[in-house]
Amino acid sequence: MIPKGMFLLDYHCERMINSAKTLAVFFANDQELFLRELIPTPSEISNKLDVAIRNAGKDTRQRLRVLLDFDGAITIQSSHLPSETKDFSDASIVVVLDKEPTPKDNIFLYHKTTEREVYNEARQRLGLGPITAPKNSDKPFDVILYNLDEEIMETTIANIAIEVKNPDSGELEWVTPPVSSGLLCGTMRRKLLEEGKLKERVITVDDLKNAALENRRIKCFNSVRKEYLVTLWI
């Protein structure tokens, strides 16, 4: 049974299991045992989540964090998810480019793990603290990472897309960087791609800046905040 209110649960479970299989070769004490017996099924993850939801209260808006160890243990962490201070329907959320590129050969860029050093360092370079709800201040909310080839990757908490003109129709459409640029295939990103609301295309730093200068929309998205427009500080 899939718990009610768990947005994109199937995608989250599938991504976790696939990442566990990929990373086991590097981190599992007994890779064969882990792959054969210890990786949980989607139903096992779902049942654990159902218990966590009941304990926290089904009417409580909450952020759930699912941790899988390489001994097969599943840990659920729950925290209250308050309403955002800012309205995510406009473009008042400010983002800024990182001060230096990030090499895309870091395996942790492609998997959702507790290893977040690359993202924390990007925030530190811009003088930003821990991630919180956007507040009415002049401080950027998030940082956009780019690789050594000056290809846009993602932000520290979300995937990103820009509006570009379709050369055939002349209409604006949303494009998002491919995973090969060095980024996590977020669950919301996957949903939007499958629905045909996004197309994959390499986005360069110049592409991003030009979109901002030409007043074409830029948006970020993840499974917690869904889609939200942002403004790039140049």
Rank of each mutant, 00 (worst) to 15 (best):
V164E: 12
L192R: 05
C13I: 07
P103C: 08
V51K: 05
I76T: 00
L8Y: 14
S181C: 11
R65Q: 03
Q77I: 08
V96S: 03
D105W: 04
A73P: 01
F108V: 01
S89C: 00
S83G: 05
L97F: 02
P140N: 05
D69H: 06
L213P: 03
R61F: 07
L128V: 08
K191V: 08
N55S: 08
F34E: 15
Y228A: 06
L23Y: 12
I152Q: 01
W174D: 12
K21S: 11
N210P: 13
H12T: 14
Y11L: 12
K219W: 10
R125I: 06
M6T: 07
N120F: 00
D149I: 08
I152K: 02
V95R: 07
H80C: 00
P3W: 00
V202C: 12
V175H: 07
I2E: 04
V175W: 03
I218S: 04
I39V: 14
A122N: 07
V66M: 12
I53L: 03
V95Q: 02
T22N: 01
C13V: 09
K199G: 05
D71K: 01
N106T: 01
Q62L: 00
V118I: 00
L198W: 07
L208T: 09
D105Y: 04
R116V: 02
T204C: 04
Q62V: 01
S180M: 09
L35A: 02
M153I: 14
V96W: 07
A161S: 10
R190V: 05
D50V: 01
D69Q: 03
G182I: 03
E100P: 06
R116F: 01
F141S: 02
I17S: 14
Q124S: 02
L49P: 11
R217E: 01
Y110L: 15
K139Q: 09
K58A: 09
T85E: 06
L81T: 06
K112T: 01
L9P: 13
G5M: 09
L172A: 12
I76Q: 00
F34P: 13
P82S: 02
L68F: 09
I107C: 05
M1A: 06
D87V: 13
Q62I: 02
R61Q: 08
E151M: 10
I203Y: 15
P177M: 08
D71W: 00
N147I: 13
T231Q: 08
F108P: 01
S79E: 03
M16Y: 14
E154A: 10
K135S: 15
V143K: 13
P82H: 05
F70H: 09
R125A: 04
D10M: 15
S19L: 12
P82W: 05
F70G: 10
I53M: 01
L145E: 09
R123P: 15
L81H: 10
K99W: 05
I157D: 04
T176Q: 08
I152T: 03
T102L: 00
K135R: 14
F34G: 15
D50P: 06
S78A: 02
S92L: 00
I162S: 08
V164Q: 15
I203L: 13
S92Y: 01
V179K: 12
P178H: 12
R125G: 04
L184E: 08
